[in-house]
């Protein structure tokens, strides 16, 4: 049994297809949707955790790719460049798990890595380019 965190991108034409359903039914995979959204360009994006035997996970991912889904490993790490960061509040407003927040007294940006689910919503939001996502 292995477990993998991946970001799936569904292009517009297959956004409405019941693709993930097949992963359960035909590949016997467990999955947990941690985050999902339809982005501005009408792409579907989902952060999922997938569990199953090694062979079935691999076969399931192959099936997804065949259907036109782009698979990306969830970002392994998020790095906040404290030298560049100006502690505005843009990224905290996008962080659903409140891993990024402003200290209640100093209003300095704090990043609590343990809370981060690496969804990448903060990507592109930083006005001074202080957030780096490692995929």
């Amino acid at each position: 049994m292995i477990s993998k965190r991946i970001v799936l991108t569904f292009p517009e034409k297959i956004v409405t297809k019941p693709i993930t359903y097949k992963l359960v039914k035909e590949y016997d995979l467990q999955f947990n949707i941690l985050r999902a959204e339809i982005t501005a360009d009408i792409e579907g994006k989902a952060l999922i955790e997938i569990k199953g035997s090694k062979e079935k996970v691999e076969a399931g991912l192959k099936y997804l790719e065949k259907e036109g889904v782009t698979i990306q490993d969830a970002s392994k790490d998020i790095i906040i460049d404290k030298e560049k960061c100006i502690s505005c509040g843009v990224c905290p407003s996008l962080c659903i798990t409140s891993a990024l927040f402003l200290d209640k007294n100093s209003y300095e940006l704090i990043f609590d890595k343990d809370k981060c689910i690496l969804c990448g919503f903060c990507e592109n939001s930083c006005p001074v380019n202080a957030i780096k996502l490692k995929i």
Binding site: I86, S87, C88, G89, P92, S93, Y107, P127
Partner: peptide, 13 residues
């Protein structure tokens, strides 16, 4: 709903 300021209160201080 989460809120966030574009203006940095930290730097303003």
């Amino acid at each position: 709903v989460a809120t966030g300021g574009l203006s940095s209160y930290f730097k303003a201080t």
